[in-house]
Computed example of a mutant assay.
Amino acid sequence: MDSLIGTIPDTWQATSLGAVCQVQAGPSRAAFGTAGSADTGLWMITPTCIQDGQLRDHGRIALSPERAKSICNHRLRTDDIVLTRIGESRRHALVDATRCGYYLGGACILLRPHPPGWPDEGPSVDARYLNHYLRLARVQHWMADEVGGVAVPVMSATRLQTLPLVLPPTSVQQDVASALDAFDAKIAAHQRILEATAELRDALAPALFTGAIPTPTTTGHPPRPT
């Protein structure tokens, strides 16, 4: 069977994002007014918070209790997906337990998978599977095409609901997500090694250039040929 991402087994399902997810745009600025600056423990996610497929606290906005109450239906839950709606590319990230209770920003869209069997024993999507599916090049191209041709591309929730979605059986979705999660963990580990090595290099370079750290030649012990 043909699909957006290629040929898939006939036993899999081809559906749309809106059939298995709540797709909700963030609140308008008029809904929450001017954000406060005090640390109230109530935070709003902005596109800046979405970095390298993860949610970060950098860029979050503090909300007053009154403002948070006015947008209570935009409060995030674990395994929600937050996606940017403005700009050329669509960045997204899965909400983890540490950011459960944050609020959706106006420049973002919420994707919340329906519970299994909702409605009428319909198909369901695993949040981790969906998170990886949205990274696929053909999916990213579809989203770019949907908002192309304008000065400021903006993805609407209504348009995003029509995104073609491939759904294998739930157990296969979980297997796919686990495999790609493992790759992400390895990438993150190597990235930390690269960052630590770069920091060490930058820290040692001035001392090497000034002779503060002896080299093998200055100590009379040249390095062995390799």
Rank of each mutant, 00 (worst) to 15 (best):
L4D: 07
L4C: 09
I5T: 15
T11G: 03
Q13L: 15
T15A: 03
G18L: 04
A19T: 10
V20I: 11
V23S: 01
Q24W: 06
Q24V: 14
A25N: 08
S28L: 15
F32M: 04
T34F: 02
A35E: 01
G36E: 10
A38C: 02
D39Q: 13
D39C: 06
T46N: 05
T46Q: 06
C49T: 05
G53C: 01
Q54V: 07
H58I: 12
H58C: 03
S64W: 06
K69H: 11
N73Y: 02
R77E: 13
D79A: 14
L83I: 08
L83M: 15
T84C: 05
R85K: 15
R91K: 15
L94A: 03
L94G: 01
V95Q: 00
D96K: 12
D96V: 12
R99S: 03
G101A: 10
Y102K: 00
G106P: 03
C108L: 14
C108G: 04
L110A: 06
P113L: 04
P115I: 03
P115C: 04
G117Q: 07
D120Q: 13
D120K: 07
G122P: 04
S124A: 15
V125S: 00
A127L: 07
R128D: 05
Y129M: 07
Y133Q: 06
L136K: 08
V139Q: 00
M143T: 13
A144C: 04
V152M: 15
V154R: 08
V154W: 00
L160S: 00
P164M: 11
V166S: 05
S171D: 15
D175H: 11
D181A: 11
A185R: 14
A189Y: 10
Q191Y: 02
R192Q: 14
A198R: 13
A203P: 00
L204P: 01
L204D: 03
A205S: 05
T218Q: 11
T218C: 06
P222D: 09
P223Y: 02
P223G: 13
